[in-house]
């Protein structure tokens, strides 16, 4: 296998993490909606926590993206 081929495979493997972060973000919003539909009057007070959870799980996907970009464009 050439180095270039290995690089592309590595970047593709790093992209798996982005899909897993998508599961996490979906879980955050899905659980919020589930709780919000059960008790809509309490939902507005929890929006800050919703976005904190979103930010925390999204960050890991973004880091996976950074790794893919580093492999593609920075590693020589």
């Amino acid at each position: 296998m050439t180095d270039l081929g290995a690089m592309y495979i590595g970047a593709g493997l790093a992209a798996i993490g982005i899909g897993l972060a998508a599961l996490g973000v979906g879980n955050v919003f899905g659980s919020f909606l589930e709780g919000a539909l059960r008790n809509p009057s309490a939902a507005d007070g929890q929006q800050g926590r919703l976005f904190i959870g979103f930010a925390a799980s999204e960050l890991l996907g973004l880091i996976a993206f950074v790794v893919a970009i580093l492999i593609l464009f920075v590693v020589k």
Partner: peptide
């Protein structure tokens, strides 16, 4: 780092 990285990567992506 997480604060700066999140914004930068989200916009770049």
């Amino acid at each position: 780092f997480s604060l700066g990285l999140r914004l930068f990567v989200a916009m770049t992506a």
